[in-house]
């Protein structure tokens, strides 16, 4: 960050062996990321075998299935396939709403924690991570118990007389949304906290001395400085929400596919269409890469 105190950040002490230091990372990335992704890419161009598996004949059938609707029987003239676009749009909207909700709750939280005394900060951070010691599956099932029609939430609201009939949240998109934003909230809090913690509050004071209002200080000074933290948080929430399948399955009643559940069905379900699952994964991956590419380019420009 430009506001740093200075000092060398690049050390030449390990220069001769720098490549070797990176080797383990490259092996891990290559073995667990690049090779699997390449396999998925290859599989997306193969032919589906009837009961799961693939035949080694190269074809564009999986991508064709994604893009073109040839009717129930596959012989109508091709039109645009809305089925999967709908699923992708639903997933993107859900992930976007989850990101905004996380930001609205996460930013003030992170701000609050970062402005406490140093000793209290670690306690607050510790408290933020406590719920995440419990497995995601168990947290999602617990959420289901909480919001079900005759669950504690409804019973509480009914007892207070706030509502007359139970809220029907379970098995709706709202339930899915609750699960998503709750699951990924700390991914928003932590990077923003890290950015705010490094913010030099003397800058705010200087702004105030120069007659800037609170809103101006926030917009002109604070936000530009903590922006990388906000963007990192948004990416960390948006990307996993996009591929979530536990929340739509358990909280949404598996009624409407999200991208994650669509892909899962291709590999685990009876349809067993591996190439189509692989093609859907590649399309999802490409979308994420495009978003990250524009982000990286924007970052690079700012540095210049």
């Amino acid at each position: 960050m430009a506001a740093g105190i200075g000092g060398r950040t690049v050390s030449s002490a390990f220069a001769p062996i720098r490549l070797w230091l990176l080797l383990p990372s490259w092996v891990v990335i290559g073995f667990f990321l690049l090779i699997p992704v390449l396999l998925i890419l290859v599989y997306s161009f193969l032919t589906k075998e009837f009961r799961g598996g693939v035949i080694w004949d190269f074809t564009l059938a999986a991508y064709d299935q994604f893009l073109f609707d040839r009717g129930l029987f596959g012989d109508d003239p091709p039109t645009i396939q809305w089925t999967y676009i709908t699923i992708f749009v639903r997933s993107i909207l859900q992930a976007a709403v989850a990101t905004v909700l996380c930001l609205l709750i996460g930013f003030p939280t992170a701000w609050y924690i970062a402005t406490r005394a140093a000793r209290m900060r670690s306690i607050w951070l510790f408290l933020v991570t406590v719920p995440y010691w419990v497995n995601l599956l168990i947290r999602t099932v617990s959420m289901k118990f909480l919001i079900r029609e005759n669950g504690p939430l409804n019973e509480f609201l009914l007892a207070l007389g706030i509502i007359d009939s139970p809220l029907e949240i379970i098995n709706t998109d709202i339930a899915v949304q609750l699960g998503l934003f709750y699951s990924y909230l700390p991914f928003m809090v932590l990077p923003i906290y890290a950015a705010v913690e490094r913010y030099n509050f003397a800058l705010s004071e200087a702004g105030a001395d120069l007659y800037a209002g609170r809103w101006t200080i926030m917009r002109e000074i604070v936000l530009p400085v903590v922006k990388p933290g906000i963007i990192a948080g948004c990416i960390l929430v948006f990307v996993p929400s996009l591929g979530a399948f536990l929340a739509p399955d358990l909280l949404g009643g598996a009624k409407n596919f999200m991208i994650g559940s669509l892909i899962e069905e291709q590999f685990k379900g009876q349809a067993g269409n591996w190439p189509f699952g692989a093609a859907s994964s590649m399309i999802l991956l490409s979308m994420v890469l495009v978003v990250l590419f524009f982000y990286a380019r924007g970052q690079a420009r700012e540095q210049v």
Binding site: L72, G74, N256, E265, Q270, A271, N273
Partner: peptide
């Protein structure tokens, strides 16, 4: 058979879209 199953698979995907 495979061709027939494909239609049923299609009905299922459309149902859950």
């Amino acid at each position: 058979d495979e061709a027939t199953q494909k239609v049923y698979d299609q009905i299922w995907t459309r149902l859950k879209q």
